[in-house]
């Protein structure tokens, strides 16, 4: 078991379109679970997925899918790899049922097309070009899974999905991961990261800037509130228990973490600190640290999307 190669291995991968476009010296090894691939637009997420799936040749570096080169050993890798690409509407004049049956015929051990369509709530006999964006998105995910793959790469699979469909998709993908499928899911949505991923890798201008395991992040409670900008945090820290952390976020928000959780005395301390500076703490929320928060922190993005329980 320990001799089994990683499901996805990239070493020193570079594919540059310009000084800040593409991916640069990217390395990763994934053996299990769902990994979120996060980054701003143009960060290199799609380029990375296309390199991993064998659609693009890196200028330097190596890719291995379960120990095999996706380009040199394409016939083997395509049998164990499923991928859903962005901005694609496959065979617009076909019907989902017939398309999945055709695709299933190309694989050695495919899943049943009908049950997959049912699972993804995609009508089998509607022409693809007349499906809604969400239905096309779900069909693409079904196409990625039809070959019963060991490795799945999904590029923005929840784009265009309503909350109910997104939740259903999470459930299907989590079940696949529980069955041993290793996935990379490129996403912009913090909700996707927290609902799906055990791990997150963050790209910025083509460089890997963070590789975060869910198990490694603390789950201590944190307090977020809005108050006037540029208040002196040193005074607040002095008033909080030792080992506390306080910092300002964007949009006039502040974050407080303590080693002992957030209780009424902490809220009172914050309120008092604000009052001392002639302002008021509003929009107070208490939550726990999340993978998406760590991703956003690494991306140095707005905290507006940070979810709080």
């Amino acid at each position: 078991m320990s001799n089994e190669p990683p499901a996805i291995l990239a070493e020193g991968l570079t594919l540059a379109y310009g000084p800040q476009r593409g991916i640069f010296d990217f390395s990763i090894s994934l053996t299990q679970g769902i990994t979120a691939l996060a980054g701003n637009n143009g960060a290199g997420k799609t380029t990375l997925l296309e390199c991993l799936s064998g659609l693009r040749s890196p200028q330097t570096g190596d890719v291995r899918i379960c120990g095999r080169d996706p380009q040199k050993d394409r016939s083997h890798v395509t049998q164990i790899l499923g991928a859903s690409l962005q901005d694609v509407t496959p065979y617009p004049t076909a019907k989902p049922g017939e398309l999945l049956k055709f695709l299933a015929s190309l694989y050695s051990h495919p899943l049943a097309p009908d049950s997959l369509l049912e699972q993804f709530s995609v009508p089998a006999t509607t022409v693809i070009k007349t499906l809604s964006a969400g239905q096309v998105q779900r069909l693409k995910c079904a196409m990625a899974l039809i070959g019963n793959p060991r490795v799945v790469l999904l590029d923005e699979p929840t784009a265009g999905l309503d909350p109910g469909a997104r939740s259903d998709l999470y459930s299907i993908l989590r079940n696949s991961a529980a069955d041993g499928v290793v996935m990379i899911v490129a996403t912009h949505l913090t909700e996707d990261i927290d609902a799906l991923a055990d791990r997150a890798i963050v790209l910025a201008q083509g460089h890997l800037v963070a590789d975060i395991q869910k198990s490694d992040i603390g789950t201590a409670e944190q307090l977020v509130f809005r108050a006037r900008r540029d208040l002196p945090l040193e005074q607040l820290l002095n008033a909080l228990p030792t080992e506390s952390m306080a910092r300002s976020l964007s949009n006039d928000r502040y974050l407080v973490r303590t080693g002992e959780g957030i209780d009424s005395s902490i809220i009172a301390t914050v309120a008092s600190w604000c009052a001392q500076h002639g302002t008021e703490a509003t929009e107070i929320s208490i939550g726990r640290n999340t993978l998406s928060y760590e991703v956003l922190r690494n991306l140095n993005m707005s905290d507006q999307s940070i979810p709080h329980d």
Binding site: S53, G54, L55, R74, S75, T78, Q79, L81, G82, A83, L85, D87, V88, T89, P90, Y91, P92, L103, L106, Y107, M143, G147
Partner: peptide, 18 residues
């Protein structure tokens, strides 16, 4: 040409069809 525009050709690039 229309399959190329819709991304169908690229989609088939990740299937066992060469």
């Amino acid at each position: 040409a229309f399959e190329r525009r819709s991304g169908t050709l690229v989609t088939m690039g990740v299937t066992p069809i060469s």
